[in-house]
Design a protein around this nucleic acid. Structure first.
Length: 288
DNA sequence: ATCGCGACCTGGTTGC
DNA sequence: TGCAACCAGGTCGCGA
């Protein structure tokens, strides 16, 4: 599952291998990944042909490639969803099993294709009109915690005004972007906080510390993700070595807590799972 | 305004 | 062995 660190690895790969290239033609193999382009797949393909990629940018889990002009141009926007990949492949290489969109390139990436591959198709591509600097479609998304302009005090203020549980707050992209289920659980474990603790019952210092752990987890993942990244292959599969070795909470139901050896618990949360240590991360008392 | 939940989607795994 | 149910989860839209 790509979260911010994985998406940043992809962004860096695109910056290196696709910026400077011109899109010569586009083939949409499945309509769903371009559903956010309201004018349809044919228009999506037509409007991208001949455009030049001039940058590779990211906010949270969204990526965009400014076209023609890095300040005022349009942008090709991408979200990887749960299972999306952006690959730069030789044009003649065999199609991936879940290849959805192919964009032929010339110039800086002569003879190669940018490919959007996505099994579950929660992700997608779209064209953002005038979105080079920041696509208006994602202007509501908050900055992410490794953005130098992320405002810690503002996050803490807003979190402390909310009655929602702190895990839900971490997943609220309008408050803080780029955090998904895995890194939310990891950050909370490191902070010894139960995810259902209401934001408005936490001390400012606890939330500042939580932010520190969010950054720590992301930076560690980034350091490891960056090393598995090969020159001509812009890849993310969410299963880089990081997930196997460094997780303390996610997916560890029944395993001993790495701090206190209490068996880790799993509970249902928002149609998914939360993993935590019932000793280190005690549940909040029920208020009445 | 704020909050929380269901829908979307596929394929690997589990259970009968 | 075959089939159905379950599970993974980011985002959006809707209803309370």
């Amino acid at each position: 599952m790509p979260e911010l660190p994985e998406v940043e690895v992809v962004r860096a790969g695109l910056e290196r291998h696709v910026v400077g290239a011109t899109i010569t033609s586009v083939e949409v193999l499945h309509p769903r990944p371009v559903r956010r382009h309201l004018a349809g797949a044919a228009d999506f393909a037509a409007v991208l042909a001949g455009r030049r990629v001039v940058a590779a940018r990211r906010r949270g889990k969204y990526l965009w490639l400014p076209l023609d002009d890095p300040e005022t141009g349009d942008a090709l926007m991408a979200h990887l969803g749960m299972s999306g990949q952006l690959l730069v492949q030789p044009a003649e290489s065999v199609a991936e099993r879940h290849l959805r969109v192919r964009l032929a390139l010339e110039g800086a990436a002569e003879g190669r294709e940018l490919r959007f591959v996505d099994q579950r198709m929660f992700g997608g591509l779209s064209l953002s009109t005038g979105g080079a600097a920041l696509p208006p479609e994602i202007a509501h998304i908050a900055r992410d915690p490794i953005d130098p302009l992320f405002d810690d005090d503002e996050f803490v203020r807003r979190a402390r005004r909310s009655s929602s549980g702190v895990k839900r707050l971490l997943l609220t992209q309008t408050l803080i972007s780029g955090v998904g289920n895995i890194y939310a659980d990891e950050s909370l474990w490191r902070s010894r906080l139960h995810g259902e603790r209401p934001g408005n019952r936490l001390a400012a210092a606890q939330l500042h510390e939580l932010l520190g752990h969010v950054r720590e987890v992301m930076n560690e993942a980034l350091a490891q993700g960056g090393t598995s990244f090969d020159a001509l292959y812009v890849n993310v599969n969410g299963e880089s070595g990081y997930f196997d070795r460094s997780l303390h909470a996610y997916g560890r139901e029944g395993d001993p807590c790495d701090r206190c050896a209490t068996p880790m618990r799993r509970v249902a949360f928002m149609n998914r799972s939360s993993y935590f240590c019932p000793t280190c991360q005690p549940a909040p008392r029920v208020r009445r």
